[in-house]
Measured scan of single mutants.
Amino acid sequence: SGEEFIAMYTYESSEQGDLTFQQGDVILVTKKDGDWWTGTVGDKAGVFPSNYVRLKD
């Protein structure tokens, strides 16, 4: 389980282990570690910068 966040911006990365997503995607955040959080979008999982998302209303 985790908290749902909304992507405010598209995040694209070629780094292994990074979670890429489109603006407006719902991200289920499973771990918060400083500026880099872990989460899932659909069947993808990985880390992403926390300043790209906001808490879902």
Rank of each mutant, 00 (worst) to 15 (best):
F21Q: 03
W36D: 06
G2Y: 09
W36F: 08
K56H: 08
T40I: 06
S1D: 12
R54E: 14
F48L: 03
L55N: 08
T30D: 07
F21M: 03
G2R: 07
F48R: 02
D25S: 08
S50K: 06
T40M: 15
V53D: 02
E4V: 06
K44N: 03
A45T: 14
K56P: 12
T38Y: 15
S14G: 12
A45E: 14
V29H: 02
L55H: 09
K32T: 11
L28N: 10
G2T: 15
F21N: 02
W36V: 13
T20Y: 07
Q16G: 12
T38E: 13
Y52F: 15
D57P: 10
E4P: 05
S13V: 01
I6Q: 10
Q22T: 10
P49G: 01
G2F: 15
G17T: 08
M8G: 04
L19S: 01
W36L: 11
K32R: 07
S14W: 09
Q23L: 06
E12D: 11
T30A: 07
F21T: 01
N51D: 09
F48V: 00
V47W: 08
E4M: 07
F48P: 06
G46I: 02
L28K: 15
L55K: 06
R54V: 15
E4S: 08
S50Q: 10
V47F: 05
L19E: 01
L19Q: 03
E15P: 04
K44F: 02
K32E: 10
R54P: 03
D43L: 10
K32V: 02
Y11H: 11
D35P: 14
E3D: 05
D57H: 07
E12I: 12
D35W: 14
K31M: 01
D33C: 15
I6K: 05
T10H: 10
G24H: 06
G39Q: 00
E3H: 05
G42P: 02
F48G: 01
E12Q: 14
T30S: 06
L55T: 12
W36A: 10
F48D: 03
G39C: 03
V41E: 02
V53W: 01
V41F: 14
D43I: 09
S50F: 05
G2V: 08
G24R: 02
N51F: 07
S1I: 15
T30K: 06
S1Y: 09
W36K: 15
T38R: 11
R54S: 04
Y52H: 05
D18V: 12
V26L: 13
S50G: 10
G39Y: 01
N51A: 12
D43R: 10
E12F: 08
V41N: 14
T38D: 03
F21W: 01
T38K: 05
T40S: 15
K31E: 14
G24P: 00
Q16T: 13
D25E: 14
Q16A: 12
W37I: 01
V26S: 12
T30C: 07
D18T: 12
G42E: 08
G39T: 00
D35S: 15
D18W: 07
M8S: 12
V47I: 12
I27L: 07
T20Q: 09
G24K: 00
M8R: 12
V47P: 00
E3Q: 11
G17N: 12
Q23N: 05
D25T: 10
S50W: 00
T20S: 13
A7P: 00
D43W: 04
M8W: 04
K44S: 08
V53T: 04
W37K: 03
Q16D: 10
V26D: 11
W36P: 03
D33Q: 09
E3L: 07
Y52N: 01
A7R: 00
A7G: 04
K32G: 01
T40K: 14
W37E: 04
V29S: 02
T10C: 04
V41A: 14
L55S: 15
I6L: 08
G17S: 11
K31N: 15
G39S: 00
K32D: 02
T40G: 03
K56S: 07
K32M: 15
S14Q: 15
E15I: 10
M8I: 06
G42F: 05
K56R: 08
S1E: 11
G46D: 00
T40Y: 14
G42K: 04
V29Y: 02
V47C: 15
E3P: 04
Q23T: 14
A7L: 00
D25H: 00
E4D: 13
G17I: 07
D33H: 09
N51W: 08
G2K: 15
E4L: 10
Q16R: 11
M8T: 08
K31T: 08
D35I: 11
G34P: 07
W36Q: 13
T20P: 10
S14M: 11
S50Y: 08
Q16I: 10
V47L: 13
I27T: 03
Q16M: 15
G39D: 01
G2P: 07
G39V: 00
D33W: 01
T30V: 07
K44T: 03
Q23I: 09
W36Y: 15
L28S: 13
V53E: 03
K44D: 15
R54C: 10
G42S: 08
L28D: 04
N51K: 11
T10F: 04
K56T: 11
V26K: 12
W37R: 03
L19K: 01
E12T: 10
D33Y: 13
K44W: 05
D57S: 12
D18R: 14
G42N: 07
K32P: 07
T20H: 10
T38W: 11
V53Y: 02
D43P: 10
V41C: 06
D25R: 00
G24Y: 04
K32Q: 15
G2L: 06
F5I: 07
T10W: 02
D25C: 02
Y11D: 02
F48C: 01
T20C: 13
S13P: 08
Q16K: 15
G24M: 00
V41G: 04
K31S: 14
V53P: 02
Y52P: 01
D18I: 12
G34S: 05
G2I: 08
E3C: 07
E12C: 11
N51R: 10
F5C: 07
G2W: 07
G2M: 07
G17C: 12
I6S: 08
E15Q: 15
K44Q: 15
L28F: 11
E15D: 12
I27M: 03
E15F: 11
K56C: 14
G34A: 07
G42W: 02
F5H: 10
I6M: 06
T30Q: 13
S1W: 04
W37M: 11
Y11L: 09
G39H: 00
L55P: 15
G34C: 06
A45P: 01
D57L: 11
D18Y: 14
T10E: 09
D18P: 02
D57A: 07
T10Q: 08
F5E: 06
Y11V: 01
T40V: 11
I27C: 02
D35G: 07
P49V: 00
V41S: 14
Q16H: 14
G42Q: 13
E4F: 07
Y52L: 10
D18A: 13
T20D: 07
T40W: 14
N51M: 10
V29M: 00
M8D: 07
T38N: 12
T38G: 09
E15G: 10
D35M: 10
V29Q: 03
G24S: 05
Y52E: 03
S13N: 01
G39M: 00
W36C: 06
D43E: 10
T10A: 06
Q23Y: 08
L28V: 13
I6V: 13
E12M: 09
D18G: 14
L28G: 05
T20G: 08
Y11I: 01
G2S: 14
E15R: 14
I27P: 09
G2C: 14
G17F: 02
G46C: 04
A45L: 11
W36T: 08
